[in-house]
Write a protein that binds this DNA or RNA. Structure first.
Lengths: 215, 215
DNA sequence: ACCTGAACACCGTTCAAGT
DNA sequence: ACCTGAACACCGTTCAAGT
């Protein structure tokens, strides 16, 4: 029997963590942030409030774990995306995925600082999330570069490019999820945003048509 | 004595409302969302928790009032902005203003739905905020159109344009306020974003240089 | 050794009691 | 007539007590 499969007389720690996270995600999807209480998580995952605190230091820690998983999932999604349909198509595919994650986890990001105040946040779990964030960012950067090059185009060379794209995805996702503008079709917004962001981040064509250089 | 200057033996209702909102805004600026409790608002504005509920139906109503004031202020800011320095310069000026408002009020927007659940929200105050939102949006639209025309350029004709710009401003503001990317200078992000959004929303020049048509 | 849930210090909100 | 603040039903979190 390996170390990792060790179970207690009452339950497997890893499985218990998983059940807690699954219950939290379900509650979030069903009833939003307001429905996510420690008591309801405990009830749904079949434990007690006290026991949850043996696997998570506090409620924030549950958010952080969910956020990390969401980012890892998004990174895999981006890595699997086809590169051969151009930058705008790539971005148009990423937007709905971002929005989907935003429903569950975006509020948490938004509430994070807010709830914490300034709290110097040097928990280990935060460092882990920073790493998954980095992996997601790199996945997106590669995807953009590759999609551009398949189109015979170049991305602008600016360190602010990726933060701009990430900010844009976030803003559009928030707009889609909360549907602020009532008079525009979501898919029209997605298409316009994808093309506008693409115009924003690609370098001007040297020639008129994509293809080998010199007209 | 006019109707509007009517005061009670104990205090002026309008003044009391004002003091409540000022106290709420101060608490928000000082300690973030977590510091904004009804008890602390009551203490700071020199009333009691009970009395606050005579002027605001609930805590959300305080947010909504703050949000409306913030939007009105932003609309005035945008209207006062010079048009003669081009679209990108205009946007670069709007970003810090949006970010400033975002610190105070953005969280509230983000938390709104979240806190409410789906609650069919047909309070009068929400209708008012919708109106101030509309006024802000129109101010921004006019400013963009005028700045473009002074440059001899045109905005793209698409109903998704304004929602895209608003989403972008929101996303960038959130990134600035929470400084997600640690390795990029905020003012570099602002400049890049302003230019990228401009490239995204302006129609391609017919001629090379701005100026009268035909090259 | 592991797990529970009453207890604690908060929160938003109400309403009987004071002035 | 206007105002207060104890009381209520929650929340996140802890820890004595159970098994």
């Amino acid at each position: 029997m390996t170390e990792s499969s060790r179970k207690s007389a009452y339950g497997d720690a890893e499985a218990r963590r998983r059940m807690t996270l699954d219950a939290a995600a379900e509650l979030l999807d069903e009833g939003g942030y307001a429905a996510l209480t420690i008591r309801s998580v405990a009830q749904r995952s079949g434990t007690s409030t006290g026991l949850i605190y043996q696997y998570f230091a506090d409620k924030q820690e549950i958010f952080i774990a969910l956020l990390g998983e969401s980012q890892t999932e998004s990174a895999a999604f981006v890595e699997a995306l086809p590169r051969d349909r151009g930058v705008a198509a790539l971005i148009a595919s990423v937007i709905p995925q971002t929005a989907r994650q935003w429903v569950r986890v975006g509020r948490l990001i938004a509430t994070w600082r807010t709830v914490e105040g300034d709290a110097r946040y040097e928990r280990e779990s935060v460092a882990e999330v920073r790493e998954t964030t980095r992996l997601y960012n790199e996945a997106l950067r590669s995807a953009l570069i590759e999609a551009a090059s398949k189109e015979g185009r170049c991305l602008r060379d600016d360190p602010a490019l990726l933060p701009f794209v990430l900010s844009g995805l976030m803003g559009i996702s928030d707009t889609l999820v909360n549907n602020w503008p009532t008079d525009v079709d979501p898919s029209d917004l997605i298409d316009f945003a994808a093309e506008a962001i693409t115009r924003g981040i690609t370098a001007p064509d040297t020639a008129g048509q994509p293809g080998p250089a010199t007209a």
